[in-house]
Design a protein around this nucleic acid. Structure first.
Lengths: 215, 215
DNA sequence: TAGATTGTTAATCGATTAACAATC
DNA sequence: TAGATTGTTAATCGATTAACAATC
């Protein structure tokens, strides 16, 4: 069977460095703030000052995705914000599930900041019988046995993991099998996952410990 | 007045890169886990596999602080753990305050993971009259006017900031004046602080947004 | 036009990795 | 001894920055 040779095989990974992608949400956050404040234009210098990084880095980062500015004028705030939303695929709402209905899970499920910035918590799960069926804000805690149905219903790809450290790996394995592709892990442990699954970590203690070195 | 010329003037900043210091708590976490599991020895290779980084990097990082291993044998788990605790100044307990008694502040104040790893929440503050005096776990929410007294009493240097984004900067200014030297900021905004103050950030939405790019 | 700021190039800077002698 | 693993060197890799022509 004959096939056209494409210049960018669809299996090739993007050539934008992860570290650059990692800064885009920071730019988006600053631009959203400016937009809310009614600001019409900004510059790489102004963004840099607000974020504590260099203006050259901002211009270089953006140049991976196109030309969004005008010489002498800078960037139109709303326009650049919307470009970043598109690049990050944040021009739509994404469903997220929370696994673990303890202290952290409850706080996370109730945090209004997710909805405001493109993510909607559609369900909270736990495997403790005494928690299943109880209310957490607007959510009723579901049993892990309902995981597959919920993921299928909402086409969920994101999960936040707020279970005790010793359960993080087995639970991660379980939700990956069920179709989750992006895990935000609040448990203080490193996860082993297949290459097509993305993991990010939140461990506040690590941050405190880092700063303590300098005191 | 004659003074001995010291080879390391006390004003000189350490020559260990921040990025290396940032990984030490990760190593400490892995070693503490191994210690709890009763493991006596480990190697840079084993640590690397557990953390998903290279063994060369672990050996290089540790070499900034001394020689902790033995050829052919690796590292004694308890010994290396204790060395890292010393290096990070985690061989003692540090008092921490929480500013903001909302959802996140409450979850943070109740999170047992801090005490287990060297940090004790000694007080929770808020400036809303209806919150002052209410209970959050074992804590009674204090007014911001008591900030100075509490910081002096416990010699607090660490604060976790869990106030709404628009108040983060003014509250940060306030606690810095009161003597805080390390801020863990949960508000989704960048803080401007004097150079002797350290800031680390936690914004779960940024992590979700980063992963969304790759979906 | 004069001033400001972009996008990009090339240089610099710093971090990671491979490799291996030393040695337990 | 043979096998394993360290600490360190040098090479590689990648990220950041300075500088500036282009141009709004």
């Amino acid at each position: 069977m004959l096939e056209t040779v494409s210049e960018e095989p669809e299996t090739e990974t993007s050539n934008v460095p992860d570290i650059v992608v990692g800064r885009l949400p920071l730019y988006l956050r600053a631009l959203s703030e400016m937009a809310m404040a009614g600001k019409l234009f900004t510059s790489s210098q102004e963004l840099a000052a607000a974020l504590g990084i260099s203006s050259a880095q901002i211009r270089k980062d953006l140049s991976h995705f196109g030309e969004f500015g005008k010489q002498g004028t800078g960037y139109a705030v709303l326009e650049l914000r919307d470009h970043l939303r598109q690049i990050l695929q944040l021009d739509r709402e994404w469903p997220v599930i929370v696994i673990g209905a303890g202290h952290i899970g409850s706080a996370v499920a109730n945090y209004s900041g997710f909805a405001q910035r493109g993510f909607r918590v559609v369900a909270v799960f736990d495997n403790a019988p005494e928690r299943i069926g109880t209310s957490i804000g607007a959510h009723r805690v579901k049993a892990m046995s309902e995981l597959g149905a919920v993921i299928a219903q909402w086409r969920v790809q994101h999960a936040m993991l707020t279970v005790p450290a010793e359960f993080a790996q087995p639970v991660a394995d379980q939700i990956i099998v069920a179709g989750i592709k992006a895990i935000l892990n609040y448990a203080p442990t490193t996860l082993a996952v297949p290459p097509q699954v993305h993991v990010e970590y939140i461990d506040p203690v690590l941050h405190l410990q880092r700063m303590t070195y300098y005191l």
